[in-house]
Simulated assay, not measured.
Amino acid sequence: MLNIADTLHTWCREARPFALATVIQVSGSAPLPVGTALAADADGNVVGSVSGGCVEGAVYELCQQVLKSGEPPTRARFGYSDDDAFAIGLTCGGELDVLVQRIAPTDHRHLTAALNEVTSGRPAAVAQIIDGPEELLGRMLSVTGDGSTHDATVGGEEWEGAVAAQARALLRAGRSDRVEVGGDATTCPERLTILVHTHASRPRMLIFGAVDFAGALSEIGRFLGYRVTVCDARPVFATPARFPHADEVVVDWPHRYLAATEVDARTAVGVLTHDAKFDIPLLRLALSLRVGYVGAMGSRRTHEHRLELLREADVPEEHLARLHSPIGLDLGARTPEETAISIAAEIVAHTHQGSGTPLIWSTGPIHHKTTPPMASSQA
């Protein structure tokens, strides 16, 4: 639905009811992906598309029917017609399922909040229940870039917690997807299929220090979906040829680059230089910013000395408590590649509030019931 966010935002601000038709499943050669939407209001205004033209008329009529009758959300399937090339159907040979529901903006203030974020260029996600108990079909929950949940309508704390966790995870990853939740006694008693619509750029991973560990970490960071930047003040080391997996390689003093670049609550900062002239001004700044993770490489002795220098630089204790150092989980890593895995594992564990212990040592659900906000406590 975020393909038509501008118009939906206007209609929501005007408290104008509308019918929303969302592609919830495709098979074969369907022209548009899952999540694409068409909307129509009572005055006959229509925006968006679900098929590139093949079945727009039929979907529009269904929208008007749902909008005027106020009937519950309804699903419809459209496919290729062998008998009549001009009949309602997808001449491309595919099939698509569409969910049509009536939206009254006064009852969906969370949607208005999410659309406001999207149209302002900020990250947001809308989770929409597309399969499950009939009374929950079409219900939505919105999550904004700081991880806040807005006026959930999915029903009940158990439902809300499970759906919000999936929405936050996909928002962090910057992708839309269909996911299953529930179906067990520890989360939701019944199984739900939700479609999470996201608007988010890739989260950033800022790696400071053009060393071998940075090369391995940039590769795994990109694999995890981060937009990776490697920064070092030494031009002989900070070259694109040495870091082919980084999205950008910057030659600059680390603290100066960090002060000038854009970060948010999903940003992961890795300080791999273990050189005080770089580390101290950089960490002093990084620990004061609204970022999700800050880690610094070095031995325990290096870490203790670094803490002394940061305290001398008047860094508050609550900022120091955010520093992950020595960086990474205890995997017994030796090589740059193994070390990169240990760092990435700690970032994932911190993001989802995982313990980092082997699952065989724990009991209860493997997946956490809820996901924390997208940033740790901030200054």
Results as ranks from 00 to 15, higher is better:
61 E>N: 12
71 E>V: 10
135 E>R: 11
64 Q>N: 07
168 R>M: 09
142 S>Y: 01
100 V>L: 09
77 R>S: 09
141 L>R: 04
95 E>Q: 07
93 G>F: 01
100 V>A: 06
68 K>S: 15
165 A>H: 02
177 D>T: 05
110 H>R: 05
177 D>F: 06
129 I>N: 08
169 A>L: 05
62 L>S: 13
179 V>G: 01
145 G>H: 09
149 T>E: 15
93 G>N: 05
113 A>V: 05
69 S>R: 09
86 F>M: 10
110 H>P: 07
171 L>I: 03
161 G>W: 06
170 L>V: 02
132 G>V: 05
61 E>M: 14
158 E>R: 13
63 C>E: 02
107 D>Q: 13
130 I>P: 10
135 E>D: 12
85 A>D: 08
144 T>F: 09
141 L>M: 06
70 G>C: 13
70 G>Y: 15
168 R>Y: 05
81 S>P: 07
154 V>W: 11
79 G>C: 05
66 V>R: 15
102 R>E: 00
121 G>C: 03
135 E>K: 11
170 L>S: 00
97 D>T: 00
113 A>E: 01
64 Q>M: 12
109 R>H: 13
74 T>S: 14
133 P>Y: 05
89 G>V: 07
180 E>N: 04
100 V>F: 13
97 D>Y: 00
95 E>W: 06
98 V>M: 12
102 R>V: 00
128 Q>K: 14
151 D>Y: 04
65 Q>Y: 15
141 L>K: 04
104 A>N: 10
118 V>F: 04
108 H>Q: 06
92 C>E: 02
91 T>Y: 15
99 L>K: 01
74 T>V: 15
99 L>M: 04
140 M>A: 09
136 L>R: 08
129 I>S: 08
63 C>Y: 03
116 N>Y: 04
157 E>D: 09
88 I>D: 14
180 E>S: 10
151 D>P: 13
129 I>L: 08
94 G>K: 04
80 Y>P: 06
168 R>V: 02
105 P>H: 03
120 S>I: 08
111 L>C: 04
122 R>V: 00
117 E>A: 01
110 H>W: 08
158 E>Q: 13
162 A>C: 10
125 A>D: 13
143 V>E: 05
64 Q>C: 08
162 A>F: 09
88 I>M: 12
135 E>F: 13
159 W>P: 03
131 D>I: 01
165 A>F: 04
150 H>G: 06
160 E>I: 12
112 T>C: 03
175 R>L: 03
147 G>V: 11
149 T>F: 09
151 D>F: 04
177 D>S: 08
64 Q>P: 07
109 R>I: 02
130 I>E: 10
79 G>E: 07
122 R>P: 01
84 D>C: 04
135 E>M: 12
110 H>G: 14
138 G>F: 06
83 D>M: 00
65 Q>R: 15
116 N>E: 14
170 L>A: 00
173 A>V: 03
129 I>G: 12
129 I>Q: 07
69 S>F: 11
134 E>V: 12
150 H>L: 14
75 R>S: 06
61 E>R: 09
119 T>Q: 09
147 G>C: 11
83 D>T: 01
114 A>W: 02
179 V>A: 07
135 E>C: 09
134 E>G: 12
103 I>Q: 02
109 R>A: 09
159 W>C: 00
166 Q>D: 06
